[in-house]
Computed example of a mutant assay.
Amino acid sequence: MTTGQDKRATRAASVLREEILQAGPGTFIGAEDALMSRLAVSRQTLRMAVSILTQEGLLTVRRGQRGGLYTRLPTSESVAHMASVFLRSQGADIEDLTRVNALVAAEAARLAAANPSVEARRTLCDLVEQADRATGSSVIDASLVISRYIGVLSGSPTLTLFTTVLSELARGGYAERILSDSSRIDACRRAHRALARAVADGDQDLAAEVIRKHHERLLGWLGSRRRMVKSSRNLTQTVDG
């Protein structure tokens, strides 16, 4: 049950949050006594508000002569980690992840191909070449680096965050279930090379189409795996029966 103090702390956090987002990282926003007076809240309420913002990655507390509250901004990695933990707790499965990623990645690829920096677009080719040389578990890491870079290259903070979240979630054993043999790894590498060429050439429609077809292939692999697991379970039940 929410108490009056909880509500006051939430309101104080909302006021400070807006100030932080406008001020940018590393800005001194006040000492505790000054903030209590300005926000007209008790010390306990202020500390509750500070705790909220600290957990959001927006505040840091410094001690000493120049102590007080200083602003900071959360990183996409920290936000992505928490989002992936939440999605796992809600039972997000690999098919859900792949379907959503198909939509997000296709739009990110389209915008990446429209990035005005030719050098930045060609950097994707370098990442793909590095991924082609990867072996073992590094294959998955290299693939996720490509996905994240596409988000950054799109120039959209929203797509950058979403691609980072989905990449973080894919680390949870999901990627290993898709890239289960060398033929699939080779198919992914071919898709990455086609995507890199399309982005380097600035071909937005082709970049989006490459991603769309790639994710159709991934979903097909997942469907095959699901049918195989179901068949194995039916066989086990028949033997046990």
Rank of each mutant, 00 (worst) to 15 (best):
M1W: 05
T2G: 07
D6H: 14
K7A: 15
R8L: 15
R8E: 15
A9H: 09
A13C: 04
S14C: 04
S14R: 08
L16F: 02
R17C: 04
L21V: 10
Q22E: 11
G24P: 03
I29S: 05
A31Q: 13
M36P: 13
S37D: 14
R38G: 07
L39W: 08
L39S: 05
L39F: 10
A40G: 08
A40D: 15
V41D: 10
S42C: 08
S42G: 14
T45R: 01
R47F: 06
A49L: 09
V50Q: 08
S51K: 09
L53A: 04
T54L: 05
G57D: 07
T60D: 02
R62S: 02
Q65D: 13
G67P: 10
G67Q: 06
G68R: 00
L69M: 06
P74N: 03
V79C: 03
A80K: 00
A80S: 15
H81A: 11
H81G: 03
M82W: 07
M82S: 11
S84D: 12
F86E: 12
S89Q: 08
G91F: 06
I94T: 05
I94H: 01
D96P: 00
L97M: 11
L97E: 09
T98L: 11
V100C: 12
V100P: 00
A102C: 07
L103P: 01
V104P: 00
A105K: 02
A106P: 01
A106Y: 01
E107H: 10
A108M: 07
R110L: 06
A112P: 03
A113G: 08
S117R: 02
S117M: 04
S117E: 09
V118Y: 09
E119V: 13
R121L: 12
L124K: 00
L124H: 04
L124D: 05
C125R: 00
L127R: 15
E129F: 02
A131W: 00
R133C: 03
T135D: 05
G136A: 08
G136K: 00
S138L: 11
V139D: 02
I140V: 14
I140L: 10
V145S: 08
V145G: 02
R148N: 01
Y149N: 10
Y149R: 10
I150F: 01
V152C: 01
G155D: 04
P157A: 05
T158H: 02
L159I: 11
L159Y: 06
F162A: 15
T164Y: 05
T164Q: 09
L166Q: 04
A170R: 14
R171M: 02
Y174A: 08
E176R: 02
I178Q: 02
L179F: 13
L179N: 06
S183I: 03
I185D: 01
I185P: 04
D186G: 07
D186V: 12
C188E: 09
R189H: 15
R190H: 03
A191S: 15
H192F: 08
H192L: 13
R193K: 13
R193Q: 15
A196S: 10
R197Q: 12
A198E: 04
A198M: 02
E209T: 13
I211S: 10
K213H: 10
K213D: 14
R217N: 06
R217V: 05
G220W: 00
G220H: 09
W221H: 03
L222T: 04
G223E: 06
R226K: 12
R226I: 06
K230W: 02
R233V: 13
L235A: 14
Q237L: 14
V239C: 01
